[in-house]
Design a binder for these strands. Structure first.
Lengths: 232, 232
DNA sequence: CAGAATATTATGTGCAGACAAAATACATAT
DNA sequence: ATATGTATTTTGTCTGCACATAATATTCTG
């Protein structure tokens, strides 16, 4: 019998230890909550909290009646924090700079219209800017804002505050989608980023929504060599 | 007074609704758990579960005694699921293929040695393979395995099961780090991926650990045009 | 007035008991 | 044999209560 584990963290750690020690191998059914609670000398709710957390992290698979088993293929979840660009740069101790290139109403390309589920010929606010780190180009922000869904967006001067930052605190979104990819720099992007045409650029496309109304679509093109890091 | 909300999900949704409706603006202190429980006609534990979940998602900031407030900069968290490559391909309804290119003991380059915190001249198992989707090259897997930390790795024939898949179910890790970047294809990679030299490739570098012992480092180079998608 | 001791307050977590919901296994009826 | 209904098992979650813990506010003391 086990020494009593009366915190959900202790139970969490012990279960994880057994999995790593292969006492419980991938695919194995582990004892039910009631039995584990008895073994650990704690309440079932405590075991539940521990196992639920492990399931959220993809370590366990749980199904009512079927029980709890060790995940066969522990799905790794990488959590990417997407901060405001200014914060991202300042947190590395670099000085932040910002250059607005364009701010005008226009009808976007078909591709953007589709991504935003827009009626044809809808005019959007097009904002284009470069964010600088230590006076070197860091990332190009190419953004389309749905002025109908963001009150006041028309009257903002995005040379003072970046659209990136303004939107975050003025246009809360309910959900969004995000895509990462690699593209070769065209002449325009390479010039803005002080790079060579053809250089491989890391890009992030993001569209955010307020329920079923689109707020904004942005394409961020990072300077060559950019890496996005996180942990598992 | 509110209609009774007696499930944590209902409380969760109502709090989110109020934040989104700007009843509670970013930075605002919201009522404490006891008061909310009274208002919603449920137990404090139920409110706690809802608020805790929202805090985990970055929507709320909570501190003992100081109370709960709406996050000023709702840090967007994009959760990337990193599945087994075979599953990733099969889930799209494509047929999976796999070609082992190399499996031998060798001393890795300095760069890899550093990433893995290895003593100089340590021999590792080097596995190189291409994963195919519908008979087209999908991704190059270039992997180094610390044979000392993974018992049995030496006697596995990675032409039968991919290292990617075998390791996941035979070498559980405690933590890891992961980096995404864009690189231009060199002659070797472009040939393996049926691409042109200079094409922009999406790359993922991943190193996993079992406590303080390194298990494996892998570089995945995706075919041109690859996109990694998720939601916010 | 400064600094230490103490009280207060909000969240964090534990416990026991209860019932709900889902999924399976088993029994029954046609 | 097949379809349907019922029992059982396991996780999911709610309740009400208690105490722990962290952070702040207040009081006491020199």
């Amino acid at each position: 019998m086990q020494e009593t584990l009366n915190s959900w963290q202790a139970v969490h750690d012990e279960v994880l230890r057994r999995i790593h020690a292969r006492d419980w191998a991938p695919g194995d059914l582990i004892p039910n909550e009631t039995d584990l609670a008895a073994e650990f000398g704690c309440a079932r709710a405590t075991v539940n909290r521990a196992l639920r957390t492990l399931a959220e992290n993809g370590v366990l698979d749980r199904r009512r009646k079927a029980g709890t088993r060790v995940a066969l293929h522990p799905i790794s979840k990488a959590i990417l924090d997407i901060p405001v660009i200014r914060h991202e740069i300042e947190q590395r101790g670099q000085t932040y700079g910002y250059v607005l290139l364009q701010q005008k109403l226009a009808v976007p390309q078909m591709q953007i219209q589709l991504a935003m589920h827009l009626a044809a010929n809808t005019k959007l606010l097009h904002v284009k800017a470069v964010h600088m780190a230590d006076n070197a180009p860091y990332v190009i922000e190419d953004r389309w804002i749905n002025q109908n869904s963001v009150s006041g967006a028309n009257s903002i001067d995005f040379s003072i505050i970046s659209a990136n930052e303004w939107l975050l605190s003025h246009a809360p979104y309910t959900h969004g989608d995000i895509t990462f990819s690699a593209v070769a720099a065209d002449a325009h992007k390479s010039e803005l980023l002080a790079a060579q045409p053809g250089d491989a650029l890391f890009e992030m496309h993001r569209t955010t929504w307020d329920h079923d109304i689109v707020i904004t679509t942005v394409c961020l093109s990072y300077a060559p060599g950019h890496k996005m890091k996180t942990t598992l």
